[in-house]
Amino acid sequence: MTRSDLDRPVRVLQPSESGGTAEGQKADEVPTTWTGKFRAVWMRTLPPDKMLPERQPAYVSSWIYVFGMLTIVSLIVVVASGLVLTMGGVAWWHTSSIGHYVNSLHFWSVQLFFVFMVIHLWGKFWMSAWRGRRATTWITGAIAMIASIVTGFTGYLIQSNFNSQWIAFESKDVLNSVGLGALINVTDFGQMVLLHVCLLPLAVGVVVVIHVLLVRFRGVVPPLEAIDPMLEVAAKEAKS
């Protein structure tokens, strides 16, 4: 910052123009920049109280609802332990007891991640949580699960131990049988390492973010047999 910057007179923003929200703008003021238009759409779609609400519908009252969050935080532990593993290189954990412990963290957090994700899936299935234009939420969740399984599988391939030798040998036949082995070679350690630590986690992360944003955007699905609160209001009004 130069001296002249500091010398420049400061114009105090008026309350009406200081708000970072679309509501902060004058109602008749239509955004003209890409940024402004994007912000307007974002604020209309996912305003802060929808993105980070302090209240939930009263029916959000079962332990089954915590398994989505448990899956996300498990993914955070999976990624964190994986990042520590990458720092030591691909063979570190065979030769260092600390490395082996970090590998154990990665192993067990993955087990927890899948346990929680499957319970989350069971819960959402029995709630038929795709109702009310929430099909995309289900679809992104399903894709996240499949991407996670593929990511997990490539992780098992790059353990560089007996298990990874064996499953590489076994699974190559599956990919070869439909021609995919030409593109994705499970017996190529280098290719599997890069897929596992870069492309696939990125894919899982992006799909999970979209999934969570969709959950916040649509809200939690109402119970299958909930009484419509609008009808109740109408009935009360009719009585009085």
């Binding site: 009252s61 079962s62 332990w63 089954i64 609802y65 915590v66 398994f67 346990v115 499957v118 319970i119 069971w122 819960g123």
Partner: peptide, 16 residues
């Protein structure tokens, strides 16, 4: 464990 967690999640009352 998965089944127990699922059944537990359905049956154990959620705090008010």
């Amino acid at each position: 464990i998965m089944l127990a967690l699922f059944v537990g999640a359905l049956l154990i009352p959620f705090p008010k």
